[in-house]
Design a protein around this nucleic acid. Structure first.
Lengths: 220, 220
DNA sequence: TAAGCTTGTTACAACTTAGATACAAGTAAA
DNA sequence: TTTACTTGTATCTAAGTTGTAACAAGCTTA
C-alpha cells in the first residue's frame, strides 16, 4: 500500500485529492503548507509527494529540493499558464507535473505511472472478489487463497490490467510468453481454461472468437 | 474519429505506432521527415501530432512552433535522458512527452489523455444509434448489444470510419480482407447484407451500382 | 423493353477456431 | 533418483465463421 503526501494550500482541492486517491487504494495525508510538509516528511515515509508549487510560508522549490534528497518521487501541480514553473520543476528533478485545473482521472493516471516507474506500483489489483497481491504474486478470491502457477498468474495479471479491453491472441502471447504467436498452439486456450476453472470466471473471461479474450464483469 | 499525424524518421517505429493506433480506432498518417509533415499539416486537419524531436531536414522544434500556431496538441518523443529536450519542448507549448524506448500502452494512454483534455477524447464511434466500442470490439444499437462476427465488425468499422464516403469494392477488400479483390466473389455483398440485417441499416448502407458501398444518414 | 451486367438472397458446405482430455516433456524440490 | 508440479503438445469434438453455388431481382444502356 502506497503512502502519498499531498501538499496543497487550498483545502477543498487537498480534500478532493485525498478522497479520490484514497478511493483508488492509496493512503493519503494532506498538509496545507510547506512547514507541515517538511515535518511530515521527516517523521514518516512516503512513496510519492503531490506538491502544489504555490505555497505559503515555504517556497515550493525549496521543498522540492529537500524532497529530492530523500529520493521520493514528486509530481508537482502548477497553474494553467505557468510554463516557467513547469520547466523549473522538471529541471529540479520532479517526475511529472499536473496542470490546474486538473482532471482527477489524469491525476490518478500520473500517480500510477510514476509509482510504477519507481517500482512501487500498487501492490494489489482487484477484479470483482478476486485480488492479486502483486508483491507476493498471490491471488485470493473472496479471501480464500487460490494457488496459481507462474504462467497462470502472469496471464491473469494481464487480463486484469486490461479489464474491458480485448486482448488479441498475439498480444497475450507477447505479453505473457514474450514470444511470437504460433498459430496452431493450444497453450493459450489451455491456460485460459485453467484460469476460468480455478477462479470460477467462466462468464467473465469471454472469448472473442478469432480475436482473443476479454475480461468483463458478468452481464446480469 | 480522431486523426493523428505521426512524424517519426524510423520507419519501423512509425509503422508500429500506426498499426497500434489504428487498431485502437484512430486514423493515422505517418511521415518520415519534417518537410512532409509540414505539407500534411497544411493540407489536412489533425487532432493530434506525435512528433519525434530528432528529425532529418527540418528541426523538430521549428515544426513544433509551427504546429502550435495551428492549435493542434503535440506529444513529442525524446530519447531517454534528454531532459533538456523535454524542457525545451514543454516550453514551446507541447502538451506531453513520451520517452524512448516507450511502452505502446503508455503511448495510448497519453494520446487518450491529451485528446480528452482537448475535448476530443474518443473510445467510441457512432453512427446514428449504433455505437462501436473500440476497445472491446463490441457493437450496440440503441443500447442493445448486437453480436457481430470479426469480419462483420471490421467491415462496419471501415464503413463508419468513412461515413459519407464511397468505398470502392476493391478498397473494402483491401481494408477488410487484406487481399486483392477477386471480381466474381459474392462474399462482400454477403457481409454487407448481414450487416444491414443485424443492424437494421437497409437504407443507410447504400449500394453504389458498379462502384461499391457508402454509409449515409437515411434520407427523410 | 430487352439484353447484359451487377447485386441481393438463400442454403449449404468447407473451413477455422476454441474447449476438453490425456499425456509427455521439462523443472525444481525432497 | 524420486516426486510433485508446471507447461506445452496431440488429438478429438463442438461450435462458429465464412465463402461458394445457384438463382432471383435490380439497374443500365441501347
Amino acid at each position: 500500500m502506497n503512502h502519498i503526501l499531498i501538499v496543497e494550500d487550498e483545502r477543498s482541492i487537498a480534500e478532493l485529492l485525498e478522497i479520490q486517491l484514497t478511493k483508488a487504494g492509496y493512503v493519503c495525508t494532506y498538509v496545507l503548507d510547506g512547514e507541515k510538509a517538511a515535518d511530515c516528511l521527516e517523521e514518516n515515509n512516503y512513496d510519492l509527494v503531490l506538491l502544489d508549487i504555490m505555497l505559503p510560508k515555504v517556497d515550493g522549490y525549496e521543498l522540492m529540493e529537500y524532497i529530492s534528497t530523500l529520493n521520493i518521487p514528486v509530481i508537482f501541480i502548477t497553474a494553467k499558464d505557468a510554463v516557467k514553473d513547469r520547466i523549473k520543476g522538471l529541471n529540479m528533478g520532479a517526475d511529472d507535473y499536473i496542470v490546474k485545473p486538473f482532471d482527477i482521472g489524469e491525476v490518478l493516471a500520473r500517480v500510477q505511472m510514476v509509482l510504477r516507474r519507481y517500482g512501487k506500483g500498487q501492490n494489489e489489483l482487484h477484479f470483482q472478489d478476486v485480488t492479486l497481491h502483486l508483491s507476493s504474486r498471490r491471488v485470493t478470491k473472496g479471501g480464500e487463497e487460490i494457488s496459481l502457477t507462474p504462467k497462470e498468474y502472469d496471464l491473469l495479471l494481464v487480463l486484469v490490467q486490461n479489464k474491458d479491453i480485448v486482448l488479441y491472441r498475439e498480444e497475450l502471447f507477447e505479453k505473457v510468453w514474450e514470444t511470437e504467436y504460433i498459430g496452431n498452439s493450444r497453450t493459450l486456450d489451455l491456460h485460459i481454461q485453467r484460469l476460468r476453472r480455478k477462479l470460477n470466471l467462466q462468464e467473465e473471461i469471454k472469448t472473442v472468437f478469432r480475436i482473443g479474450y476479454i475480461l468483463e464483469e458478468r452481464e446480469t
